[in-house]
Amino acid sequence: MSIQLQAITQQFHGQTVLDNLNLTIEPKKIYGLLGRNGAGKSTLLNIISNRLFPTSGTATLDGETLHDNDQTLGQLYLMSEVNMYNDHSRLKKLIDSTALFYGDFDRAYATQLAAKFGLNLTQRFGKLSTGYRTIFKLIIALCVPADYIFLDEPVLGLDANHRELFYQELIDSYTNRPRTFVISTHLIEEIANLIEHVFILDQHQIIVNGSVSDILDRAYMITGPDADVTAYTSGLNIIGQDHLGGITANYVYGALEDNRPIPDTVTVERLDLQKLFVNLTNAKEAAAHVN
């Protein structure tokens, strides 16, 4: 049981946004979907949820198409930046309609979350600030009985307190009812400890697809005097560099050579996800560095 994307290509006005993309999203996992602005993250999520048609390729859930299919579409929910609700509708009514269409909507939890976030459900959607619109959409996403929840910029406009609260609720909700979450965000540091698996989208393709621990096990920062670092990292997959005075930091993605002795002047440290992402996606030739 999984969502499968096969050979997805998306072009807008002759410009390629996604190029022959293949992806599997498995059940009961928390994924991070990372990419720079305009990388195609939202487009990808909109294709999965059948809001956009890919130029070519297929999206399926358990082998059944996601195109115009109530059965499969009803098993996923996309909370997106775009406001899909009518501005005049009251929040209570929107909850009612979500419950009507999805069934088994957790109203008690929705009411509880609204109280925690300080959201008045008698308000109209159009009267909410950006932050509270996000909060409302998050509440729906956490309470809807779908097996695959996609969160596109889930903390847009949220203050630090509300972001903390959301991450905590996400963990609690996942613990109580394991299901798949795919989180697309620019705040990598905030979700780094939350996600099990990461997709990095760059240059129209998925350049990294793997478990966070496996990926970070292959990401290093090697620092020391310029000559020593250069000598030690020669032949390795260097994805970025920093210089400060005579000190150089080379960022390496891939296995180090076990038989190569580490000079005393050189230190080897792990990279965090954000630093890895920045270095992988910084240069135009980044894709060439990815194994």
């Binding site: 115009d68 929910y77 899909m84 609700y85 269409f101």
Partner: peptide, 10 residues
């Protein structure tokens, strides 16, 4: 918009 948001096909 409302229906596709709620998993309803065209």
């Amino acid at each position: 918009k409302l229906f596709i948001q709620n998993g309803i096909s065209r």
